[in-house]
Amino acid sequence: MSNDTRILYCHCVYAKVIPDETRRAVLAELSASGVAFDAVADLCEMSARKDPALKRLAGSGAVRIAACFPRAVQWLFHAADAPLPETGVDVFNMRDEAPADVVAGLSEGRTSEARS
């Protein structure tokens, strides 16, 4: 993994739309991996409340995000006046993807288009 691509993990804590076993498996792997990451409780809540931390999370360059649907994540950041960069963003969907695939994506990135 390139040194300047960050990882952002969303725990989706205020509604159970991500399976609990997926959240725990992804977070456990990240926690044990020795890589750096930012973790947030709930990107939706941060967006609704215009949390200035979103600017920090969006504005620090390339990032791989473990959350939910890429379209939702993109516009949640936009709604908080903290748009994600046009390039260098990979979003992995913990609603649909297996934990192992999310973890592999976070460490290796996607070869395909970032936000589709």
């Binding site: 040194n3 804590v13 750096a36």
Partner: peptide
């Protein structure tokens, strides 16, 4: 996280 906090885990060689 379950209590709503934002947590950064820094590590040598990778960015936050």
């Amino acid at each position: 996280l379950e209590d709503g906090h934002q947590v950064t885990r820094p590590a040598a060689g990778t960015a936050v």
